[in-house]
Design a protein around this nucleic acid. Structure first.
Lengths: 307, 307
DNA sequence: TAAAAATACTCCATAGGTATTTTAT
DNA sequence: ATAAAATACCTATGGAGTATTTTTA
């Protein structure tokens, strides 16, 4: 017995005509005829009395049809439940965001999102990438916003945007006089960096080594936030690399790189189990709407990896 | 999606182990693994979290499993309902029996059967074969007892026994002095016959022509019952052919044929739709128990056809 | 005789098998 | 190291197609 056969007999009972029933099931008349017959053979019961046209169910057939309808309803219920689970936005969600994004990105979209979707609520935690990943896996978090790729089979990433990496330089550096900086011309010496653990530190180190450079630091100042680093630079102390959302691009200290521009890929991250597709879609849309247009995918970029 | 896949995920949820689940489903582990995966792919939902052993259902998986169990229950319900319908004896049944059997056969088993199966009741009608067939088809009868074969696609015959045909002869006939009569030696002239419509008349005519004989009747006496014919013979008026149940075999008027003996095949007849197999089985057993042992199938017979 | 259903046959998708590799404890 | 699960590959069943015949009204 299979689900198709049940659908065939139900359709046949509804139409009392093989051709019409077959059309409804998107198969040919012989296919439907054969399958109905096969089911009858398997159950060893005549479901339809074909001795006169239009055919009609036998007494046993009536019984079978009633039960077949109930079974099909349950089966459709499975698909429907999944669909509605995927389509529903409502719920309480635990969101982890990396510290180099949280203060700059969340204010841009979260309030509006909550107003637009009153059924949703979020508990936001600032966490470093590895903690977000671990907590998504252990079901302590539902969603993450972080820099991808992670290359973790259990975690699904939905890329949202590509955030340019800018140079934030003090006035006394040579870069200050340039309009745009070439990535190749960058020496990584005396670069101010975030402390260990922040993915952005890893990203910059990665960028550095991918350029075949070795950074030597006279001052090994490591801060926990861009705000401190910016303060250092503002007070004429070296330079740093900084993602665009973390700075006012109109500041005279900010320098863009020439093409190909380094960017970091910012993604939504969820456990493979997460199925609220609609929520992901809506969140992605809301975030995309809140960020500058040039963050959208662009071929002329160097996507830097954080790990 | 198919029923097997639902059974696989339910088994997997029960055992939390692919090997054991596969054993329960009588398939190999790779088969079960693949099918579960295929279902997940089709539904686009992870049903099981395999990141740690033993695996466990995802939240969405729990939902799916609940519904899958309900669906399987309905599906099993179909088979169970059929089985119980087939196995149940209880009910009111309308039984048609041909007149040449009814008065001799019914008293032999019906009372005992009713006592043994208090849940059953019968409405018996004496009808000729063609009427039984018509009423089985039009659902005015549930069961028939008649002489087969009928060769009607809508009617199912369950042979019960083979009733010998005997010669019932008056004392002045040449047959009276013989111990056993050879079928070939029989002249069909002046044979007393039942009136038109009775299948037994057709059977005898059939037997006659199959022997290459042509019957010529001096006295064309046609009766509606064997009792009348027997009365004629008892009063020294010719002879007749008569099925064994209709006579006292110890009577001196009764002569057996030599082998191969002519017999008629007595069958239960039902419409193809009829599914109470157990009832048929029990009826057949009861009838068989009530008739002489030599009525059971025997190779040394000439099965005569009534049509 | 026209419409409906059954039959004959052909094809290919896939459920299921075996052998092996990969993963998790 | 060992048990469990996934993967690769192969086979054969049977679901579905087209063409045709048979049946019903």
């Amino acid at each position: 017995m299979n689900i198709q056969q049940l659908e065939y007999i139900v359709a046949l009972d509804e139409h009392r005509n093989h051709v019409k029933a077959a059309q409804q099931c998107h198969v040919t008349q012989p296919t439907l005829s054969m399958m109905v017959k096969k089911l009858e053979d398997e159950l060893d019961v005549k479901i339809f009395d074909r001795s006169s046209l239009p055919l009609k169910p036998t007494p046993a057939g009536e019984l079978i049809l009633t039960k077949a309808r109930a079974a099909l309803k349950e089966i459709r219920g499975i698909k429907d439940a999944i669909k509605s689970e995927k389509d529903t936005i409502e719920g309480e969600f635990r969101l982890g965001v990396i510290p180099t994004l949280a203060p700059y990105l969340l204010p841009r979209f979260l309030h509006e999102f909550l107003q637009k979707h009153p059924g949703t609520s979020f508990t936001v935690t600032e966490l470093q990438t590895q903690d977000i990943v671990a907590q998504l896996k252990s079901n302590k978090l539902d969603l993450g916003i972080l820099v991808s790729p992670l290359e973790d089979k259990e975690i699904r990433e939905i890329p949202i945007f590509y955030e340019p990496i800018l140079l934030y330089t003090s006035e006394h550096m040579k870069y200050f006089k340039q309009d745009r900086i070439s990535l190749k011309s960058l020496t990584y010496d005396n670069l101010l960096l975030l402390e260990e653990g922040h993915c952005f530190r890893g990203q910059v180190e990665n960028l550095c080594s991918s350029m075949g450079k070795k950074s030597v630091h006279q001052l090994n100042y490591q801060s926990g936030s861009f705000e401190t680093l910016k303060g250092m630079v503002d007070n004429n102390y070296g330079y740093t690399l900084i993602p665009e959302l973390a700075v006012n691009v109109k500041s005279k200290h900010v320098k863009h790189f020439t093409s190909p521009e380094p960017v970091r890929e910012v993604s939504l991250a969820v456990h493979n189990n997460f199925i609220k597709e609609k929520l992901l879609e809506k969140l992605r849309e809301a975030i995309l709407k809140s960020i500058p247009n040039h963050f959208k995918k662009n071929e002329k970029v160097v996507r830097i990896r954080w790990n």
